[in-house]
């Protein structure tokens, strides 16, 4: 079970700049660590994360072993219309995750 936390302001004025924050529980395995038996733990990072706002891609992050464990991203979008801010991501092992929130935009 993977956990994510997403922070999107529930309400915004049209044209307002809103801050989006997301945190995902993931070890971001570097591929350089070994287990207790001396066997290399394969690299496994959240390699691709996409944020769509009302269906349109607004942000994409391609991340490697240089991103800290439990990746955290904070960026902005302009509130245009009410709708969904949806995140989806995939790691090197093919495991997928998603999170979404609704933003209500007023004039």
């Amino acid at each position: 079970m993977s956990v994510a936390r997403l922070l999107v302001p529930p309400r915004a004025k049209r044209g307002e700049l809103v801050e989006i924050r997301i945190a995902i529980q993931h070890p971001m395995e570097t591929g350089f660590r070994m287990d207790n038996m001396g066997k290399v733990i394969p690299k496994n990072t959240v390699s691709n994360l996409v944020c769509r706002y009302n269906g349109t891609e607004v942000f994409r992050a391609e991340m490697g072993s240089g991103i800290a464990a439990n990746p955290y991203l904070q960026f902005y979008i302009v509130a245009r219309e009410s709708g969904a801010v949806e995140f989806s991501w995939i790691d090197d092992r093919g495991e997928k995750g998603s999170a979404s929130a609704v933003i209500t935009v007023t004039a």
Binding site: V3, R5, R21, A23, Q25, N70, Q74
Partner: peptide, 15 residues
Amino acid sequence: DFSSPAMLWITRGEK
């Protein structure tokens, strides 16, 4: 309380 990585475990604990 949002950006602390520890809060991911709180979210899971609540579930």
